[in-house]
Design a protein around this nucleic acid. Structure first.
Lengths: 338, 338
DNA sequence: CTGAAAGCGCTAACAA
DNA sequence: TTGTTAGCGCTTTCAG
């Protein structure tokens, strides 16, 4: 029998270190895991050997042995709108950066809502939103995995959620417009299959009611977050006999499109039409007049999610939190009092 | 001694399957690895057991045993400009989708150029560009890892590269402008620390020479790909005493900004200024007049990279390829003959 | 065609 | 404080 030990593998193992340091592999293991029990002298020998051999423990073996994993999967529903916005980019920036710091491995999974995901070897999961892929979330939960959901407040499931208060955002937008004297306020929605868009719409409605303004169905234009849809909606809206004097648009990139359409139709902004967006997308800063908008803390949300997940993964007590981050009105130049 | 076998772990193992099917674990292993040797009857029993138990082999253990890994790391230099453009998003879309299909694990590493990356447990690496992080590339290479570099033609290193022919793109842009009768052609560059931007600039210069047009340094405006920088450049350019009649802008998002500035300054497009961008970013489609641009096959490049890497990982023969994908002129409305 | 057993690199009782 | 040893779940000789 006796299998010949593999060719002097490129990767040096804990055994090599042990030999080099003249101790057992257990001792080496203790040192690299920072267990306090190893005495100064041996410890130093190990440390030296590690340095000299440039040893890096095999994460795989560690995981296999401990059953623990420092891999977190980021599940991104392959939803078209995901690639229109800068949402994903901001998320990635926040999550990726923090993972790098916390030494977590970030596994990216762009999945179709219907597919069943394998979470083997994964220590925790972040859902970059829930869009028709609720079953994947339930699957992860049923496997007792630590899970955090971003951008979606899942109230009926025992899972940690970190979302933006989109409804509040909608209210802030409309309240501001009302404070400027507007009564004829339209809303161009995002794709209402996303909770974010639905909530913004809900906020819009609630604020109107609160301000004693009658809700007009013909002032609500549903889109899918794309600029193309925004253009169509804007044209329809601006050509109305009784066109609105202000519009709350569900995303900055769409708002920019609306602005462009308005100009093409000879409308001046903000004189003829006040526009408020949503996102605080830097693109809104440029252009003839800068875009008033509702800021949502995307990067913060992303980073919080990693922190929370990390905690869930580390501790035994699985305390579920529901975190809602507030939005903020950012006043620039695209709105004017009437 | 005798450690009690772990609590009936959630995850069922190959052993459970073997027991259930009444065969050895070796046989099960053979079946799941599709080795042809297992006889019909046993094979069926195993397959059934796998189904009934919903068994999914532990990737970790597989890797540990084989020394092979199906994890690919996507190294993204944490460079600001990376987050301005839609470059990364397109890349991710292409790479992520294909990884899902090929059952490869996609590890995302947003790193600072200076940091040393650990590639343990990683079976292959894709660099999403090389921007001051060449040493990381060399590190990966020295570890004999299969590597593919995207968007950067590294000529002096023995590594597979898949890049866009940015120089050609620059030439196509200028040639087109020249064909419309333009002589006074400016260029707003991207961040020339990126090879892409440098090559586009080179293409611009070469095309001018080729067309017997004198190169004017004051017609070259260097930026960092941001819309802010584009705005500044555009203002400076349009206020020149001897302003150009056409401009080639290194990215669509910057080109849109230039367009906006031009309009603000009372210039008509394309009557007073012809603009051609680079990227074929969908944003260029909307707006009063659509943007003429140079299309680069980002998603294709991304997918190619995964395919190539997958091959490198699978076969022993490490054939290095240098792939250059052509760009394509997309004529829309922002340019006019003079 | 099938199974026994060694080993991948590491951790964690248990002894010493 | 340190070492011995049994797994973690799987692959892969080598025998049968």
């Amino acid at each position: 029998m006796v299998r010949i030990k593999k060719s002097p593998s490129q990767n040096i193992s804990i055994e090599d270190v042990a030999k080099r340091a003249g101790v057992s592999i257990t001792t080496v293991s203790r040192v690299i895991n920072k267990l306090p029990s190893v005495k100064g002298k041996n410890k130093q020998k190990v440390l030296d050997a590690v340095k000299e051999l440039n040893f890096q423990p095999s994460v795989l073996a560690q995981r296999l042995a401990t059953g623990k994993s420092n891999v977190i999967a980021l599940v991104v529903p392959r939803y078209e709108g995901m690639f229109y916005s800068f949402y994903l980019l901001e998320l990635l920036r926040g999550i990726g950066t923090l993972c790098e710091v916390l030494k977590l491995d970030l596994l990216l999974r762009l999945t179709d809502a219907s597919s069943v995901i394998s979470f083997r070897g994964v220590g925790g999961v972040i859902f970059a939103d829930i869009i028709t892929n609720r079953q994947q979330l339930e699957q992860a939960l049923s496997q007792k995995l630590p899970v955090v959901v971003i951008n979606n407040y899942v109230k009926d499931l025992d899972v940690t959620c970190i979302a933006v208060d989109n409804k509040l955002g909608g209210i802030q937008a409309v309240d501001y417009l009302v404070s400027l004297g507007h009564k004829k306020i339209a809303h161009i929605t995002g794709d209402v299959i996303t909770q974010a868009a639905a909530d913004r719409l809900a906020g819009y409605k609630e604020a109107l009611v609160k301000n004693n303004i009658a809700l007009r169905q013909d002032y609500i234009f549903q889109t899918d977050y794309s600029r193309g849809a925004a253009r169509i909606a804007a044209e329809k809206m601006l050509k109305m006999a009784d066109a609105p004097s202000a519009v709350f648009v569900a995303s900055d990139s769409m708002a920019l499109e609306v602005m462009a359409v308005a100009r093409e139709l000879g409308k001046k902004i903000p004189e003829d039409l006040s526009i408020i967006g949503f996102d605080d997308n830097p693109s809104g800063l440029y252009g003839a007049i800068s875009l008033t908008t509702i800021r949502q803390p995307l990067v913060k949300m992303a980073q919080e999610s990693v922190k929370e997940l990390n905690q869930l993964m580390a501790s035994k007590n699985k305390e579920v939190k529901k975190i809602i981050l507030p939005t903020e009105l950012v006043i620039r130049e695209s709105c004017q009092s009437i």
